[in-house]
Amino acid sequence: MSAASNTARANILGRLKAAPGRPGPDLAPWTPPTYTDKLVRFRQMAEANHAEIHDVTAETWPARLATILNNRGVGRLMVAPGTPRGDALLRAAAQGVPLPTLVPYDQPVEVLKDALVHRVDAGLTGTRGAIAETGTLILWPTAEEPRLLSLLPPLHIAVLEEDTLHDTLAAVVRDQGWAAGMPTNALLISGPSKTSDIEQTLAYGVHGPKELIILLIRKGE
């Protein structure tokens, strides 16, 4: 911090501390909603957010994904090696599942930038769970599964397990004790990138993905 910034700091804090004290109010009680069927709510809200949901099973999702992507003509799919989802796809491809060309995100963005910005059609990530209230996916990108994987490719595919659904953000932040250790970047994603800056008309894919596909792994199936 520069000398000027230090002076500014001292002056700002000095003025704030010299101000008359005021009691901080007690937090008013607030009960975030709960849902008897989280899945129903999640589906309804995620679809309202323009996400496309496919019910899949833990064993066969790579084959199902291959069909979905082939129908769309996706040529290059970026995956994260070293993550359960990325590795499952790499294994499936090796076993002959007709997946698009898999491009690994295995180098720093400085090396892969051109491919990421221009030459992949889709990116696949896992999720940490989801929020029923708003139809929101929770992602905590990691060294293996970088931040831009869910952002730069025009199609984002996210794998979600049914039993990681939570009622609300309030509940998941509290129950999982997020405050004890936040990652570099925690993300909530609710649908594909969108804008309504031109005459309040919705348009998708303005900067991030134009489409979001959620592969929902049903429990016990």
Partner: peptide
């Protein structure tokens, strides 16, 4: 603001790229 239950992205940033991370 816009009558949305939530925005498409909620981005929580707690630091710069850590050793080993590939972007940020």
């Amino acid at each position: 603001a816009t009558g949305q239950p939530i925005t498409t992205y909620v981005n929580m940033i707690s630091g710069p790229r850590k050793a080993g991370e590939k972007d940020g």
